[in-house]
Amino acid sequence: MDNRIDNPVMRQEISTDLKLQLLDQIPTPVMAVNRDFEIIYMNQVGAELLGKNRGELIGKHCYNQFHTPHCNNDRCCMRKAMTTGEMVSSRNKIPLSDGDKHIMYYAVPLKDEGGNIVGGLEYIVDISEQVSYEERLQEQSRQMSTPTIKLWDGVLVLPVIGVVDSLRAQLMMESMLNKIVETSAKVILLDIQGVAAVDTAIANHLIKITKATRLMGCECILSGISPAVAQTIIQLGIDMVDSITTKSTLSDGLAEAFRILNMKVQKIT
């Protein structure tokens, strides 16, 4: 900002009128409601989003204007903000004539001088681009997420990285079983070092995968059990120890695979 400009606006706090004008010029929808969810303020972009005049929106219930899946039920962030007194945000979708608009919205309670919550203020951020990027990323990672690799003659490895959901577990299982047939593998290493979390559903998937490979005559070794994973499995109360061979590192797993195949790695002397 150029300090030489002799403009009183730049020197002192701006008037309330000017603040409202600034709010109007924010290029993202801003809305305020009273406790009954009646609109008491809507900025220009917000009115444009709804295709209405600002004047006709005042006094109307916000949920009758936006019609999102959160409107007029417990999922509404504005309702939560007014109940908890804290900022609440969530993703949501606004149904518009040209399809759903993906948004992130942030709601804060409005308080009077006495600190009583008299309404709420909310602003909306368009996240369509982010959502489509995420979808693309999800699709890409799904395609890359199930590489069963031949590590040695008779030994396969499948590194599990990130989140395992049931679809991915299914793809992993298929990829492993097909590769077992293709390579006549006797041992497969399922390495979960890079897994984002293990819960009972994911543990259940892993148990099923090891059982299926065993049915095909291929021993499955679960490797990459970090201290965090070990602790979680204990807390989950899952008995994996007796039914599955586990190793803390992939190299320990490979050593076990060599042992199963009666092979030995030796230094050349």
């Binding site: 979390a197 293990v198 009972t200 559903a201 201290p227 965090a228 602790q231 979680t232």
Partner: peptide
């Protein structure tokens, strides 16, 4: 470790 445990609990609730 706790981060991992909390993620497991959260995932459990979501599931």
């Amino acid at each position: 470790n706790d981060e991992f445990l909390i993620a497991a609990a959260a995932s459990e609730l979501a599931t």
